[in-house]
């Protein structure tokens, strides 16, 4: 459920970036105060593990849609909220840079949606109270599934909120919500069961990891990182092996529901967000305001009547001519520079 640049307005993107950066700063400070630095290499390796696990998509039964695990809950349970959040943030950052997964503006939202909710809400407020002190496998399973669902539901709600605030979607808030939440209920359940499997496995193989952990300091220095990592390795292999069978090339949950959202028949453009503010500035400053091809209002005015007047050909032509000139000029610049460079080389 990666949020995408194109669905965001700059103001919403910036707001979530601010929240995300604040949390990164808080977690970094907290880690610096409490941790032994042995946690840093472990965090790096765990990041690589989550990175790999997230690339595996699996089919969600009955929906024709697919999803991948978030991994935030697993990290939170093993590393504690602060370290887990930083690992999630780093994984999403590398994904955004190298696979353009979502994009750089949407990265703030994605870290927020997939990091904050599992690490700072689902884990401390749901998982921990449910597990309490008696950590039996069934208890862990119940707690992991419920907290997984809670985390994903909050994340999905957040995606709806971000899209709505950006003013890019035409779908009413409630309809979008009814589209998103059930899908992510399924994803949350699966995420929960995967998390439970991982935690129970690690716990069975290396129970000392979970013994005597305190909230602030989950990994104590005397627990060999090797032991933990062997457990995680097995889990990684199991996850990878098992889930790759379910891998599918279908779009994941968000894509699936956004398809249904984008572009309804009637399109009243809401004058919201910084985009419209910038737009009004543009209209005021444009030196050729009366011009056909590009202005969306014009398009909307045209659409207001059932078979209303369309944009006249003449104006479209000048727009298309202008576009062609710009594209040709851009290409020409590229070709010329390349030729010049070859010559000088």
């Amino acid at each position: 459920m990666h949020m995408a640049d194109a669905l965001l307005s700059p103001a919403v993107g910036a707001a979530f970036w601010a929240g995300t950066l604040g949390t990164i700063a808080y977690c970094s400070k907290k880690l610096k105060e409490t941790m032994d630095e042995k946690l840093i290499p472990v965090m790096g390796v765990l990041g690589a593990f989550i990175f790999a696990a997230q690339m595996i998509n699996f089919m969600i039964p009955g929906t024709g849609s697919s999803g991948h695990i978030g991994g935030g809950m697993i990290l939170a349970i093993i590393l504690g909220p602060s370290a887990a959040f930083l690992v999630m943030a780093s994984v999403l950052t590398v994904q955004a840079f190298f696979f353009a997964d979502g994009g750089l503006l949407a990265l703030g939202c994605n870290i927020w949606n997939l990091g904050i909710y599992p690490c700072f809400i689902a884990y401390p407020l749901v998982y921990k109270p449910l597990v309490k002190s008696e950590k039996t496998p069934s208890r862990i399973t119940i707690a992991a599934v419920i907290s997984g669902v809670v985390g994903l539901q909050l994340g999905a709600f957040s995606v709806v909120l971000e899209t709505m605030l950006s003013g890019m979607s035409e779908l009413p808030f409630v309809s979008f919500l009814f589209l998103m939440q059930p899908i992510h209920l399924g994803i949350g359940l699966i995420e929960g069961f995967v998390t439970a499997g991982v935690i129970n496995f690690v716990k069975a193989a290396r129970p000392e990891i979970f013994e005597g952990v305190t909230p602030e300091h989950q990994l104590s220095a005397d627990v060999s990182t090797n032991k933990i990592l062997v457990g995680l390795l097995i889990v990684a292999v199991l996850t990878g092996g098992a889930l790759s069978w379910f891998s599918s090339s279908n779009p994941d949950g968000l894509e699936w529901s956004v398809e249904k959202v984008f572009g309804r028949p009637e399109l009243p453009q809401k004058g919201r967000g910084i985009a419209s503010a910038l737009k009004s500035i543009q209209e005021k400053t444009a030196f050729l305001p009366d011009y056909g091809f590009k202005k969306p209002e014009r398009a909307e005015k045209a659409k207001s009547g059932p078979s209303g007047p369309l944009v006249e050909s003449g104006k479209s032509v000048s727009g298309i001519v202008g576009s062609a000139i710009v594209l040709a000029a851009v290409l020409l610049i590229g070709v010329v520079i390349r030729a010049l460079r070859r010559k000088s080389a």
Binding site: V258, E259, S313
Partner: peptide, 30 residues
Amino acid sequence: VSSFAFFVGVFNPLLDRQAVYEFYGFTISG
């Protein structure tokens, strides 16, 4: 990575059929 953009966008022409431009007999929808 364009599959995401494509799946987001490709439903627009199906859902938003309001004509916005007419260009020498061609009608282009929003």
